[in-house]
Amino acid sequence: MKAYGRVYYLLSKYLHWDTEPPGDIYRAITSTLKALLKDKSLTFQKSRWYGDDLCPAAWDYVFSLDLLCAQLGWIWTVSHVIRY
């Protein structure tokens, strides 16, 4: 909701805000977390740089949650959220 210009345009297209405008950000975070937990296609994959790594779909969830949490000023880092 704080996005402006091109960022807002891209988010609007990606999140389909033209058909369902952004509303309760807490609901968006909750639904994203539920989708992450229910998605059975998420796997680990081998990475030549990191050994085992999340699949691209899992990273999409992580980056989406990072963006949503940043809008609320929440700290989303390995030491605060991901590790626990």
Rank of each mutant, 00 (worst) to 15 (best):
K46L: 14
L65P: 02
L11N: 14
I82N: 07
H16Y: 11
Y9F: 12
A70S: 04
L67P: 01
K40Y: 06
Y84G: 02
E20C: 07
D52I: 10
D24Y: 06
P56N: 14
M1V: 06
G5M: 06
L36H: 01
R48W: 13
D24F: 06
S47M: 08
R6V: 10
R48V: 10
W49Y: 15
M1T: 08
I82A: 05
L11K: 11
Y8R: 15
D24I: 07
V81H: 03
Y61P: 02
A58I: 02
V81F: 15
V7E: 12
L67W: 01
D66H: 05
T19L: 03
M1N: 09
K13W: 11
Y50T: 14
L54H: 10
L15V: 05
I75P: 02
L54D: 13
C55P: 00
D53T: 06
S79W: 04
C55D: 10
S64L: 06
K40F: 09
G51D: 09
A35Y: 07
A57M: 02
L54A: 15
I82P: 01
G73K: 08
T32N: 12
V81E: 14
V62Q: 07
Q45T: 15
M1P: 07
G5A: 05
L42V: 15
T32P: 00
S64G: 12
R27G: 05
V81R: 11
F63L: 08
S31R: 06
G23L: 04
T77P: 02
A3I: 05
S41N: 12
Y26C: 09
W76G: 01
Y8F: 14
A57E: 08
L36F: 15
D24H: 10
S12A: 15
L33S: 00
F63V: 03
L37V: 10
T30K: 06
K2T: 13
D24S: 14
A28P: 00
W74K: 04
R48K: 13
R6I: 10
G73E: 07
S79E: 14
D39W: 09
T19P: 02
K38Y: 14
K13T: 09
E20L: 07
L65N: 03
H16M: 03
T32V: 07
H80V: 02
K46Y: 11
D39A: 07
H16I: 11
M1Y: 15
G51N: 13
A70L: 04
D53M: 04
Y9I: 08
W74E: 04
K40V: 14
D39M: 11
T30E: 12
K40H: 13
S79H: 06
D39L: 10
S31G: 00
K13F: 09
D52R: 09
P56W: 04
P22R: 11
G51T: 09
I75S: 12
D66Q: 04
Y61A: 03
W49P: 02
S12Y: 09
T30M: 03
F44Q: 13
G73W: 10
T77W: 03
D60E: 07
A28V: 07
A28C: 00
L37P: 01
G73L: 04
Y8E: 12
L10E: 08
V7F: 08
W59Y: 14
S41Q: 11
K38I: 08
